[in-house]
Write a protein that binds this DNA or RNA. Structure first.
Lengths: 363, 363
DNA sequence: CTGTTAGCGCTTTCAT
DNA sequence: ATGAAAGCGCTAACAG
């Protein structure tokens, strides 16, 4: 393994000159350009790569960004990273972090559910430069920890409600707006909503319903308990099995139909739910979209595999990961930067209109 | 940040005694148990955590495992980690690595497609202890690199065909056996196969077809070009868009039907393809499973969302990741271990029988 | 059983 | 414009 000493010897300079020449910073400019060039040439010829551990030890900066996933992403020992949300966010993060020349260290709690100690441990041992956190709201201790240690941190999507942290979130308001705009343009007025039928709705899922209610009210569309199915409303709490979202849709749509309300369009809290709803519709011989329009959420792969394929609001998770990572890295690269802004950065993506929505039947 | 010196002072011992006491190894046992206990107490009271960089610098072992994804996982700039295969494998790896007290460093080539230099760089800078590689077959240079550097490496699923590397793969033979057993028990004899209709079949996908042909022959089932649709066979090469697998199924099943062969069951190279095939069937008013049985591969989420839901062979990717990581870590923890065995470790998971397969029509 | 010492590779004053 | 030297926190060889 070639180090600076060997370069120094080969280039006939001292080891500290080598360090300065290769640092690329202001120090480099103070050196004789010829010396710098010579050192560079030697370094390349010898195939030099700096030792990140030595550098980290000396400078207290590791070049590592940590990724933390809250407990919601690993409920009941289920895998974390292959989850819909986690994998996409991670993809965005990875792209931005690697592009910026940093490296990504996975930290999570698969084996220590709800134990923020693990994060603290990694933090101390690995000297993380920053943290990206998905699902902070469930573990305020983690938030306290990073604040106390002044660890630059950005929350993604799911931030502690009581302490507003620097964060990147989806623009739910706009999403709901676009869905309602689309449906009302098609002539729908009685619009139903199928929400989580289990006891573990995420902050983002909750936001969707709150926002929907508010905008439905603003638009003066009809709304009552009849239009909504979720566990607050029905006392149905489905077990959270592998296919729990699908079940929510199957059961939710059944509920909705039994009520015989004059609903012509249903919004589902995600695409899997919509898939379940679609199955219930076809079992009841109700044709989608001519008799009932359906809107999903997320633009999952499933959305394209169904027939009819789903009109849906994409959940720009990759973008969100990328955005959060970029903001964090920019912050880190600015010396004496002011603390990260506590206002949420909004990310959005346009409604994808497919075959599951059609004009409302004119009665 | 508390270090060993502070512990030494507080416990009235020398710094090297602290190191020995906390090492947990054979050195610890040579010390006075009382001293060890005292040092431990102090360490805990002060909240000591070792500095991994210092340790790595000193010992040349970083405690880091790298994960490498080959180019197939990031075709045309598409995201890597959120891919079906990558995310699941990663999940298994993460679990095993973190359980064993190591940490996971993401390395990949999102921004340096086909550039093994990037791996080399990370290797040198970060002193990786080992590597887990998914998709090695596409980049033999990477394989050469790790061999040359004696970096303990385990390939997952996709190994270089010419040089057999230590690897973990799915037991394709058994998978195909179980599918054929199931179908023949149901009375099917004319069995079709829809393979990749694009020019980038993975090694695993190819293996499935090869194995199928071989076992069909052994069972003396009818087989001809009529039973197969893939790009070698039809000159159809679909563009690899977002939903390319679905398209393969849509188009592939159409081809198969046009041939009017007496096929009663079709195996698809994955569940998304089966989803496409199902759509084509319903457009042609052919009922699945009574008129045509369908078998998928992978047990994707989609498989459960379809109607009928799919009989499918699960692809035990999480298990495979876990298995590979465990093997690697075990190897690393054994001093003077012999090189990793070059024989492939097999992982398997049982056929999931759902609604898309039924007895063959007796003509 | 415990302490002294050297040094891993790098950055960073401080001198020259 | 360059070099000498100190030291980041830890481990390991050696000495006592």
């Amino acid at each position: 393994m070639v180090n600076q000493r060997q370069i120094a010897k080969a280039a006939n300079v001292s080891i500290s000159t080598v360090s300065k020449a290769l640092s690329g910073g202001i120090e480099t400019q103070r050196l004789n350009p010829q010396t710098v060039r010579r050192i560079h040439d030697v370094a390349i010829k010898l195939g030099y790569q700096p030792n990140d551990h030595a550098r980290a030890l000396r400078t207290n900066r590791s070049g590592l960004i940590g990724v933390y996933f809250g407990m919601g992403h690993q409920l009941k020992g289920r895998p974390v990273i292959s989850g819909y949300v986690a994998s996409r966010v991670l993809d965005g993060i990875e792209e931005a972090v690697v592009t910026a020349g940093h490296d990504l260290l996975m930290i999570n709690f698969t084996h220590a559910l709800g134990d923020p100690k693990r994060l603290e441990t990694v933090l101390m041992r690995k000297q993380l430069d920053g943290l990206l956190a998905v699902g902070l709201s469930e573990t305020p201790e983690v938030y306290d920890l990073v604040m106390q240690r002044h660890l630059p941190t950005l929350a993604i999507e799911d931030l502690p409600s009581d302490h507003p942290a620097p964060s990147v979130v989806m623009d739910t308001q706009r999403a709901v707006h676009d869905v309602l705009e689309h449906l009302t343009e098609l002539g729908h007025r009685h619009i139903g909503f199928i929400g989580p039928l289990h006891d573990n709705a995420s902050a983002a899922q909750t936001r969707r319903l709150v926002e929907l209610k508010s905008q439905i009210k603003n638009r003066k569309l009809p709304w009552s308990d009849q239009h909504l199915v979720d566990s607050s409303n029905t006392n149905i709490i489905l077990p959270r099995k592998d296919n729990f979202c699908l079940q929510d849709g199957l059961v939710g749509m059944k509920q909705l139909l039994e009520r015989q309300a004059p609903i012509t369009a249903v919004i589902c809290y995600n695409d899997l739910v919509a898939a379940g709803a679609l199955q219930t519709l076809s079992q009841h011989h109700i044709h989608c979209p001519t008799q009932m329009s359906l809107v999903g959420f997320g633009n999952y792969d499933v959305a394209q595999c169904l027939w009819p394929d789903l009109t849906t609001v994409p959940y720009p998770l990759i973008e969100m990961g990328k955005c959060a990572a970029s903001l964090l890295l920019e912050h880190l690269q600015t010396p004496d930067a002011p603390p990260l802004s506590h206002e949420a950065h909004m990310v959005y993506s346009d409604l994808v209109i497919r075959q599951s929505t059609a004009p409302a039947k004119t009665v």
